[in-house]
């Protein structure tokens, strides 16, 4: 599919037309945004087949709930990214629960967080300004924020996963958010 523009005004128009159940608008919205949303879903789920299922659900939610989109509150991509992230994190929680109910093997399936961070750092090379702001963060701060954002971990889960005291993890996240905000505010 040929991609379309991500320009907010254009996306807003498409969402308005989706509200009126115009299938052409959803197709245009899909062309414009699906590759970005699919990247988010793949990052969270790390499984192509699951990401495809989730992407399908995301666009059905957009189709059925376009009337609830409020341009005064969020930009179109923020709204759609939030739907995608919530959909994937919900899926992940359900999957984790199923795995825990079925077997303790889930503990062995967790990937090495250091390797994940390296891989993500490579993907972030695509955006200079983001890369700049992320360089402002300490490695531990960045790793905690990524794992929380993309994998939905709580403080306690991060503490266990990174084998660090709870207070240390909380500190890394707070300091990381402070730094990220002060860096991003002038450019957003």
């Amino acid at each position: 599919m040929k991609s379309e523009t991500l320009e907010p005004t254009h996306l807003k128009e498409l969402l308005t037309r989706c509200q009126q159940q115009d299938p052409k608008a959803l197709k245009s919205l899909y062309k414009a945004t699906s590759s970005h949303l699919f990247a988010v879903l793949l990052r969270i789920l790390r499984n192509e087949s699951h990401a495809e299922d989730c992407l399908q659900q995301v666009f059905l939610k957009v189709w059925n709930n376009a009337g609830q989109y409020n341009p005064d509150i969020a930009r179109p991509m923020t709204w759609m990214n939030t739907i995608a992230r919530n959909q994937a994190l919900d899926w992940l929680r359900r999957y984790k629960n199923d795995q825990l109910n079925d077997s303790d093997d889930v503990l062995l399936q967790q990937a090495d967080p250091a390797r994940q961070t390296d891989s993500l750092a490579q993907q972030w090379q695509n955006s200079d300004k983001v890369h700049h702001c992320l360089k402002e963060l300490k490695d531990a701060q960045r790793q905690c924020i990524e794992l929380a954002y993309f994998e939905g971990h709580s403080h306690q889960e991060l503490s266990e996963r990174l084998d660090q005291p709870l207070g240390t993890v909380k500190t890394w996240i707070r300091r990381g958010l402070e730094r990220l905000k002060s860096c991003l505010t002038p450019i957003i």
Binding site: M1, S34, S35, H36, F38, A39, V40, L42, R43, A51, E52, L55, M77, T78, N81, A84, R85, Q123, W124, N126, S127, V130, H131, C133, I145, E146, Y149, F150, L180, K181, L184, T185, I188
Partner: peptide, 14 residues
């Protein structure tokens, strides 16, 4: 602001 984490990912065509 945190959406930069999403938008900085390289797009992947489904």
């Amino acid at each position: 602001q945190l959406q930069v984490l999403d938008t900085s990912l390289k797009p992947v065509q489904p």
